[in-house]
């Protein structure tokens, strides 16, 4: 299940193709401090615990930490890559339960926990999260997406 398909291959993911228990193709991230600086610039988040060792230590961290919002971005990528260009992301909830550090290998995982049709729209609910190098979940979340239905076509 760890193979990440390209977006174009997933262009036709349909509601009927999805079942409860399905796992999303994992996305693995190995962020370095350079990526944190890139994210700081791109997101305008210049809180110094993400790039200044001294500030991070004064705030009680062993070293600089990954932006929580960057972890959210990766979980968004997990879901949108899986659903393809005809899906729509409706809800994305992410909790930063534990901090993560550059240099770690972080794995974004997800699975289908519910499928239902509401007002003719195919809705799929996902449990998502990010596991750290030890395999512990640091960043649980959930998402709701809509997918096209064959019935509607």
């Amino acid at each position: 299940m760890a193979i990440t398909k390209s977006v174009s291959e997933l262009i036709s993911l349909m509601f009927e193709d999805v079942a409860i228990g399905d796992e999303l193709p994992e996305i693995v991230k190995k962020p370095d401090t350079r990526q944190l600086v890139m994210y700081a610039g791109a997101s305008q988040d210049f809180v110094a615990i993400h790039y200044d060792q001294n500030v991070a230590q004064e705030a009680g961290h062993p070293k600089v930490i990954i932006h929580g919002a960057l972890k959210s971005a990766w979980l968004g990528q997990l879901v949108t890559t899986w659903m393809g260009v005809n899906g729509r992301l409706l809800e994305l909830d992410v909790s930063y339960r534990a901090i993560d550090f550059p240099g770690e290998t972080l794995t974004c995982i997800g699975k289908v926990i519910d499928t239902r049709i509401e007002d003719g729209v195919g809705l799929v609910e996902l449990e998502i999260g990010l596991n750290n190098s030890e395999g512990a979940s640091s960043t649980p979340g959930r998402a709701l997406v809509s997918l096209p239905t064959r019935a509607a076509n």
Partner: peptide, 29 residues
């Protein structure tokens, strides 16, 4: 991308927010 919204920083409040603490952590979105 869905979380690009993070880069669209909100403006200030009309009065100065009296933050009592020195350090910050993001709890989630």
């Amino acid at each position: 991308p869905p979380t690009f919204l993070r880069s669209l920083l909100p403006g200030d409040y009309p009065k100065l927010y009296p933050e009592p603490f020195a350090h910050i952590l993001d709890g989630g979105s």
